[in-house]
Design a protein around this nucleic acid. Structure first.
Lengths: 247, 247
DNA sequence: TCCATGTGTTTCATTATATGAAACCCGGTT
DNA sequence: AACCGGGTTTCATATAATGAAACACATGGA
């Protein structure tokens, strides 16, 4: 008996199938079965259900499965809601035009962060930032912002969950967080990706709860520490203005 | 016994719950239960599953449920794929800049059409076109395009499924389809919405299969029949060029 | 031509598993 | 205090999801 699950297995499996398509665009039934480690038969039934409800469609030519229109509908509705990713896009574009670098918006999800919105720099050499990407919370300017300005209990939880090279490692990180809290922004140089640098500031809603991190990122030879320090006030100001747009 | 369903009920129910959020942005458990006509208990378990997989999240303040991040991820992946809605967006923007009116992209889904992409006119008086909207296939320029250029069996099926005021009604419609086929485009004036007019042309893929309808729409006093006739060649040309972008 | 192989689909017995009624919390009202 | 109305959990029951196996149907060797 143990502690029984309060979820529905069949549903979780169906959602696992959908989730496969965060990486892939088109897969056959057997490919899906392999990826999810489910029986062909089971996958077939789940796909039939998903297809029936418009969450998946089959490419008429290849016979393979891909995401369906209902996903568009849902995403479109998200857009029309008061979701930050859409609400803040115009403001992000303004910042992009002013700084000439790629602007991203991150939220925390458990022990990860997700890029929920991005507007690309239009310079030749630029940081390309796919929306929807999941990144670790351990490195990067926005990660540090999402931890440094989180509520104490969240911060404690996350710090406990992350992996550390040693206690010194963790202590150094916590010292860094303290400084970030004082400065109001964070930077990172080649921390997560070689050749890339970023500077990030927190976005708080009206209730002064952290909702997202706004990041400016670019090649580290162009976006030097000096440049980032120089840009910081403008980024913080933009982030503050954005926060006022949220309820 | 009858002919047994080859779908999974629990999954269908979960997807129904998700689908509720094409209209709503935030709902409580009981509201969802009411809308889906499912038991509180069942909804609770399904929601737990959806939430666990990131398809729903609860607003920390209101305690209500809304769509989760995974939807973003999926939609973002759709965007990065070779999906017409994304692939054709730049071309649509070009057309919008040239004509100054709102441009939409429709696909057929059963006996409906769905607006999978739209770029807005930037004129003061303009047609606002939400992405993801489902519209009837019986009226509107794009509906007629989606039927007139469909494969014969699809056309027969759709004409059979739609409701008619009488046989004369249907015959008139079929005559119209014939003319649209000859002209290569369709128009509508105040057909679906008072004060709005539209002109639409088919987009065929490389295999000359109809994949979408490209529509230009605006206020009927600005977008007169004469104007639409005048614009038609340009729209058809744009639609043709778009078709070449699809595999 | 026939067999092998790899798709996707359906059937079917078996049992796990999803279900809904009811009970239970827990804040907020009356 | 008693009473709601939301959400959550328990529990017995039979329904409904499951996976093995068989089937259909291509494609491509041999």
């Amino acid at each position: 008996m143990e502690d029984q699950k309060l979820t529905v297995r069949a549903v979780e499996r169906a959602l696992d199938i959908l989730s496969v398509f965060t990486d892939e665009t088109e897969l056959s039934l057997t490919e899906i079965a392999a990826k999810t480690k489910l029986h062909k038969s089971t996958v077939h039934r789940l796909l039939a259900s998903l297809e029936g409800k418009g969450f998946m469609i089959r490419n008429a030519e290849t016979e393979k499965y891909r995401l369906g229109f209902r996903i568009w509908e849902l995403a479109a509705n998200l857009s029309q809601s008061d979701d930050p990713a859409i609400l803040l896009q115009p403001e992000m574009e303004r910042l992009r035009d002013s700084l000439g670098e790629t602007i991203s918006l991150y939220v925390r999800d458990g022990e990860e962060r997700i890029r929920i919105q991005a507007v690309q720099s239009n310079q030749a050499i630029r940081r390309v930032a796919p929306i929807g990407a999941r990144l670790p919370l351990s490195v990067g300017a926005s990660s540090k912002v999402l931890i440094a300005f989180a509520e104490p209990e969240v911060q404690r939880h996350v710090l406990g969950a992350l992996e550390w090279a040693g206690t010194a490692d963790r202590e150094a990180f916590e010292r860094q967080l303290g400084e970030i809290g004082r400065l109001g922004y964070a930077t990172s140089v080649e921390e997560r990706e070689p050749g890339a640098a970023a500077v990030s500031a927190p976005i708080f809603n009206r209730a002064h709860k952290l909702v997202a991190a706004l990041a400016v990122s670019g090649p580290s030879n162009r976006l030097t520490l000096e440049k980032m320090k120089e840009h910081a006030p403008q980024i913080i100001e933009a982030a503050t203005r954005m926060g006022k747009m949220l309820k």
